Simulated scan of single mutants.
Amino acid sequence: MTSRKIPEIFTIESLRLRDEDDASQEGQLLSKILHLSGKKRTKYFYIRTKRELEEIIDIFEDSNYRYLHLSCHADKAGIATTFDDISYAELGEMLRPCLEDRRVFVSACQMANDVCAKALLKNTGCYSLVGPVKKINFDDAAAFWITFYHLMFKTDGRSMKHRNVEFYVKNYRLCFKNQ
Rank of each mutant, 00 (worst) to 15 (best):
D156L: 11
L15P: 00
C109I: 08
L36V: 03
V130A: 04
L70N: 07
I12M: 02
S63A: 06
F60N: 07
K43T: 14
L174G: 11
T11V: 11
S71D: 05
E8T: 05
L36H: 01
Y44L: 01
R16Q: 05
Y46I: 05
A141G: 12
N164F: 10
K39D: 02
L91S: 00
D58R: 07
S159T: 14
C126Q: 05
F45C: 05
K32R: 07
F83G: 13
P132S: 15
F153E: 07
N64M: 05
G38D: 08
G38C: 06
M160Q: 10
S14N: 06
C109Q: 08
F10T: 03
L30D: 04
S159W: 12
H162D: 12
F167M: 15
R4T: 06
K32V: 11
W145D: 04
L91C: 03
L174S: 12
G38H: 12
C72M: 13
L30F: 13
C72L: 04
N123L: 11
H150Q: 13
H162F: 09
E8A: 14
D101H: 14
E8Q: 11
I47P: 00
C109K: 01
P132H: 06
A77C: 08
S31G: 08
Y44M: 13
K39L: 13
G131S: 13
I33W: 14
L91R: 01
T147V: 13
T42W: 02
I56S: 00
M94A: 09
F167Y: 14
D85N: 04
K32C: 14
L151G: 10
V130P: 06
K40P: 02
E54R: 04
A141S: 09
R66D: 09
V104T: 09
F60Y: 11
R18T: 14
G131P: 01
K118W: 10
L95M: 06
F167S: 06
S159G: 15
I136G: 01
Y65K: 02
S159C: 15
S87G: 02
K40G: 06
N164C: 05
E26G: 03
R96G: 06
I56K: 02
I86H: 00
S71G: 08
I146R: 11
D140V: 15
A80E: 05
C126K: 06
R96C: 14
M152S: 13
E90T: 06
I9S: 00
T49P: 00
K134T: 10
L99N: 03
R4V: 05
Q179S: 14
Y44E: 00
I33E: 09
F144C: 09
I33P: 07
F60M: 09
Y172C: 11
K43Q: 14
H150L: 12
D19R: 11
D114G: 07
E52Y: 01
P7N: 06
K134V: 09
N137M: 12
D140Y: 15
M111R: 01
L17M: 13
D58I: 08
L174H: 13
K154F: 11
I56M: 07
H69L: 07
V133E: 07
